[in-house]
C-alpha cells in the first residue's frame, strides 16, 4: 500500500514540520477562506490543501537517515540523489524508465528513481546501493557480483544489484528462466547477463537454504 504513511481522507493534516515547511500556502486564499466562512467548496479545499510551487524543503528517509533538501517539485528522486546529495551510485541511463540503471528500493519495493518525484517520496523508506552494505561488509549480492564477474563497464551494476536483491526477496529467482524474466527490467549493454544470472541464482539458492 502506497498510502500507509499518509493521512486518511478527510482527517486534518498532522503537524509535520518538514512537510509543512515545504508546502507553501497559496498566498491570500487562506485569509480569504477564513474571512468568508461561507466560502464555496473550492475555496475551502484550497485553504486546507498545501500547494508546493518552486524550491521548497523536502525530507527523505534515505538509507535509514532523514535527509532534508531544497528541491523543486519537478526534481526526480534520481536527480535528488545524484545532483543534490552526490550519491552517484544510482545511475542515470535512459531517464525514461526503460533501462533500470536507477533502480532503488522504496518501502522495500524495487522502484525506478527516474520516474519518481522526490517530493512524492517523502515519508517512505528509500534504500540506494550506498545503503546496501553493512559497514565494510558487502551485501551477499554485491559479493556474488564480484565473485561471478557480473559486469564489464559497471554502469548498470548498481541497478542490477538493487533489482536482484528485490528479485530474490520476492521469490522470483528460483529458476534460471524465472530469474531472467524478473530481471528483464535491467539492461546491460555489455551483455554480462550470464554472469549476472549466476550471481543472482547463487544468492537465491543460499537464501532458500538459509
Amino acid at each position: 500500500m502506497q498510502s500507509d504513511s499518509l493521512p486518511a481522507a478527510n482527517t486534518p493534516q498532522p503537524a509535520d514540520d518538514s512537510r509543512r515547511s515545504f508546502m507553501k500556502q497559496a498566498g491570500g486564499i487562506l485569509g480569504f477562506a477564513l474571512a468568508v466562512p461561507l466560502a464555496g467548496p473550492a475555496e475551502a479545499l484550497a485553504a486546507r490543501t498545501q500547494v508546493a510551487a518552486g524550491p521548497g524543503s523536502v525530507t527523505l528517509r534515505l538509507n535509514g537517515q532523514p535527509t532534508t533538501l531544497t528541491l523543486e517539485p519537478r526534481t526526480t528522486l534520481l536527480d535528488a540523489l545524484r545532483e543534490h546529495l552526490d550519491l552517484t551510485g544510482t545511475k542515470k541511463g535512459c531517464d525514461h524508465g526503460q533501462c533500470g540503471a536507477c533502480t532503488v528500493h522504496v518501502d522495500g519495493r524495487r522502484t525506478l528513481a527516474c520516474l519518481t518525484l522526490a517530493v512524492a517520496a517523502q515519508g517512505k523508506e528509500i534504500t540506494t546501493i550506498e545503503g546496501l552494505a553493512t559497514g565494510s561488509e558487502l551485501h551477499p549480492m554485491q559479493a556474488a557480483f564480484l565473485k561471478h564477474d557480473g559486469f564489464q563497464c559497471g554502469y548498470c551494476t548498481p541497478g542490477q544489484i538493487m533489482s536482484a536483491v528485490a528479485c530474490v526477496k520476492e521469490g522470483h529467482a528460483s529458476t534460471d528462466d524465472q530469474c531472467r524474466e524478473w530481471m528483464s527490467g535491467n539492461l546491460c549493454r555489455c551483455g554480462a547477463y550470464p554472469n549476472i544470472l549466476a550471481a543472482v541464482r547463487e544468492v537465491a539458492s543460499q537464501s532458500a537454504k538459509g
Binding site: L6, A8, A9
Partner: peptide, 18 residues
C-alpha cells in the same frame, strides 16, 4: 520537464476539486 506545482489530494472529491 516543465516547472509545475505539486499538491496532494486526500479524497476523490478533493482531487477533482483541485
Amino acid at each position: 520537464m516543465n516547472d509545475f506545482s505539486y499538491v496532494q489530494a486526500a479524497s476523490a472529491k478533493e482531487a477533482t476539486t483541485l
